[in-house]
Nucleic acid binder design. Structure first.
Lengths: 349, 349
DNA sequence: TGTTAGCACTCAGTAGAATTGAGTGCTAAC
DNA sequence: GTTAGCACTCAATTCTACTGAGTGCTAACA
């Protein structure tokens, strides 16, 4: 379905030069005006020295091949998802505007703070830069190792397990016990947990001594709670920026509702983005991703590679007639800057 | 501006019985139908044995007094913000429906996990129960005391400061140093920090020994980072549920955009809710809260008291013609359940 | 004095007809 | 293969007329 790079002639999908020019003109114009595009507009705008009649003939052919559609007989043409796909695959991805480049550099030169915080603010920035709702996903930390574990005595039967990972993630879990735990027990359990867990990853099971004393009980409980985390995709933090843009860029209220309700479900967003990453797709148009409620939307993602490893992705969501060139440029630029930021400073996400 | 309870006669705002009935009928009907309400509808619906002509006369008077308004001459009346205010102040707050009560009980009987997690899910539940977008705010932890501090060596010049508070909050901060720190130094600093900070609150300054050795430098840096947190309202976590409802309950796309953009700004939400809590107001209609972009919205809040202290609030946002009775009932019920949950189990938020 | 029946009036909303015009497809000539 | 020309289509716009919900006012009534 998805064709990536730009081989000049790949039999199936390719169009002759003139058709391609016409198609591109229609897509560009429609992205710009949101209106159906007529043959004469194309004839004037794109400078192929050809009359509107000729353009019309080509358009009929493009429609037959599924790149264009007509809302009704006496209207111009609008691109189909396939038309957008061609456009995305065959049009240079474009550069970021100077003002935006400056803004980006400015932001990243001054940014400080915790990973979550940086991602949150980056997400807002990306939304502002691109004009669309942005999504930043930090992928699973399942391969980060435990750097430190600590049990803190909150109440007699309520301990807090604080785990620090090598990538800087901190997890907290409540450990509830059926017996009272005193300070000394807590301390001892803490130190044994450290010995037990430091250097391990969460996906490797750990042998817990099953003696019936308080310390062992506490340890067993703590390990159980910590490892229970696994099945639910955790560590995959999602940061959404510019959610209000949804109401700006989609015209139907119903679509706005649907997109918002997708964005509400972190799990859906994560799987959408990760699925695209897995398939090596950077743009999903209309129904190309399997999410029916998003069938009138397009998603652009750019992976974030830190030290050669994909640690997350930035994405943008908009209508299928979104400004692909700018959007892809923005996503790529932000992902590169993010990667650089995390390579430059300490551990990535 | 805002009048709270229901004193039967408070001179200024009160209406005679018939006018009150008519006003209530108009408000109730308009909330139900979203249409202007005519005199005959009121005459039939509300059972004051009086003709539509009489109702009309009263309506003229109610309009003069600012409770009702007419979209145009030949239309019925719709309530003004003042009209809604009267309605809210003088109509019993209503009970939660049986099905919803069951759902609530079911949820809270089975709920487990970290505070943040519980609040997140509660927020989603409240949105679902009420049909409107919900907001849960956990107020500042400035009076929680430090239970434990720990420095973890992430990289040579990058330490992670993990602080656990008596209310179960865990904060993490990066501490970047200009000199390399080894494990022993980190450990020593950790233990001194514990001695220094345990039992203190963040709003009390701490005397840091200013010797030039690595340990002291690290300690000074850590304390500085931790206390720097203060000015920015932190610890006030905001959980938003059912954001997509915004697109359902407001009819103008522009309003949807504005409400969403308010919700994007956690700080705004927090100050809005806290302002209402401070003023002891549970419902803010139209422009009663100072937020211009929300002038066509109403906000309902209910404080969450744990062990006699206000630890947060639950809120709902909808159009001024929202279902106040149900919404207030839902907010109150959820706030009580939350309070009970945190009193029952361990430390609140 | 408060209530009400009656009536003229207002005006958004709807429906239908006429018009416009952007844009098409087709054909015939170049 | 290209294009000028033309008949045709059809959404969108404009106009008119009509409808009817609802009002305000007045005059009569209890």
């Amino acid at each position: 379905m998805a064709r990536r790079s730009t081989p000049p002639h790949s039999a199936d999908t390719d169009l002759d030069a003139r058709k391609a020019t016409i198609l591109e003109a229609v897509v560009a114009e429609h992205i710009d005006t949101a209106q159906p595009v007529g043959s004469s507009a194309v004839a004037q705008h794109a400078d192929l020295g050809v009359s509107s009649a000729t353009v019309r003939n080509e358009m009929v052919s493009l429609e037959r091949e599924g790149y264009l559609a007509q809302p009704h007989t006496s209207a111009g043409r609008i691109p189909t998802d396939k038309g957008y796909r061609y456009f995305v695959d065959h049009v240079a991805s474009g550069e970021l505007g100077a003002a935006q480049q400056y803004q980006l550099r400015d932001f990243f030169s001054g940014v400080r703070g915790e990973v979550e915080d940086v991602l949150e603010r980056t997400s807002a920035l990306l939304a502002q830069l691109s004009g669309y709702t942005s999504v930043i996903v930090g992928t699973s930390t399942s391969h980060a190792t435990v750097l430190s574990v600590q049990l803190v005595n909150l109440e007699r039967r309520h301990q807090l397990l604080v785990t620090v990972f090598s990538d800087g993630t901190v997890l907290k879990h409540s450990v509830l016990t059926s017996i009272d735990i005193d300070y000394a027990t807590c301390l001892e359990a803490s130190s044994q947990l450290n010995a037990l867990l430091i250097g391990t990853t969460l996906d490797v099971p750990v042998q817990v001594p099953s003696r019936p004393d308080a310390v062992s009980l506490l340890i067993a409980e703590a390990v159980a709670v910590l490892h229970a985390e696994r099945p639910a995709k955790d560590g995959e933090k999602v940061f959404i920026g510019g959610a209000s843009k949804v109401a700006e860029v989609f015209d139907s209220v119903e679509t706005v509702r649907q997109v918002l309700s997708i964005l509400e479900e972190e799990l859906l967003v994560v799987s959408l983005v990760e699925d695209m990453l897995d398939r090596g797709v950077s743009v999903a148009i209309g129904s190309e991703h399997g999410f029916a409620p998003l069938s009138s939307a397009a998603v652009v993602v750019a992976p974030v590679h830190v030290d050669g490893v994909t640690t997350g992705a930035v994405g943008l969501i908009g209508p299928t007639r979104m400004k692909y060139q700018e959007v892809m440029a923005a996503a790529n630029a932000v992902s590169k800057n993010l990667a650089h930021h995390f390579e430059g400073s300490a551990g990535g996400d």
